[in-house]
């Protein structure tokens, strides 16, 4: 295979996009699970322990690097594909496509860019704060843990923050709705029996992830 991303064939790029996408889909589930600890444990102990484990376990350290790589490749390839796609139709139609197809599929680049901006803000707000900022500590079972839960709860009491957060997550849901089944199609996994199941799973997944992430700030804000 050739080395430059620009000379990968279109199908290779699609396959890479989908593999990275599936990886991110799994990551989001893990992330959601950890976040949900905040809902069920007012002491924030579970959440903080989990967050600490995620941040320090050596195996997960490797995963973390892979995750960053995954994000970067997914974003980079997405942008390259999109630029090539724009170039493939230099003159646009007067009446734009009316085709009955998945609505969200037409806006992957737009939803993707919104998610990218949100991701940067999200990292600044939480991730880099944990890595480089001043997070107060709390002691759980004799050990000192950074109290990330507190940081989260503080952020989630700011109204404007929550609104932006919720909008971004709804858009993430749209992105995921198309992404889930699309990843299988790109990998060549299309079947008369199973594809409808995959599509249904994708819808469930995108709703669960978006709603799951949205419930947490709402819960914290109102209770």
């Amino acid at each position: 295979m050739s080395s430059s991303a620009l000379t990968f064939s279109s199908v290779t790029k699609k396959i890479v996009m989908s593999l990275m996408g599936l990886f991110l889909i799994i990551f989001l589930l893990v992330h959601l699970t950890v976040n949900l600890f905040l809902l069920f444990d007012p002491t924030r102990e579970l959440f903080n322990v989990a967050a600490h484990f995620m941040a320090t376990n050596p195996v997960l350290k490797i995963m973390e690097i892979s995750l960053f790589a995954g994000f970067i490749i997914h974003i980079l390839f997405g942008l390259i594909l999109q630029i090539q796609n724009w170039l493939a139709r230099p003159k646009r139609y007067k009446v734009e496509g009316y085709s009955h197809t998945s609505f969200f599929s037409k806006f992957m680049i737009h939803t993707g860019i919104v998610i990218l901006i949100f991701l940067v803000l999200h990292l600044l707000d939480f991730y880099f704060k944990l890595k480089f900022g001043d997070v107060p500590n709390m002691i759980i079972h004799g050990h000192e843990y950074p109290d990330m839960g507190l940081v989260v709860i503080e952020k989630f009491s700011i109204t404007s923050f929550i609104i932006i957060y919720i909008i971004a997550l709804i858009i993430l849901g749209f992105h995921l709705h198309h992404a889930f089944q699309s990843a299988f199609q790109s990998l060549g996994l299309n079947h008369t029996k199973y594809t409808p199941v995959i599509k249904a799973l994708g819808t469930i997944y995108s709703i669960v992830v978006a709603l799951g992430f949205i419930i947490i700030p709402l819960y914290i804000y109102f209770y």
Binding site: S9, S10, K14, N85, L87, A88, S105, K106, H178, S186
Partner: peptide, 18 residues
Amino acid sequence: MVAKMDELGFGNCTNTYA
């Protein structure tokens, strides 16, 4: 065939199914 398709300036599939 894929290589030729790419070379000729067609866009990439994003599974919109249009």
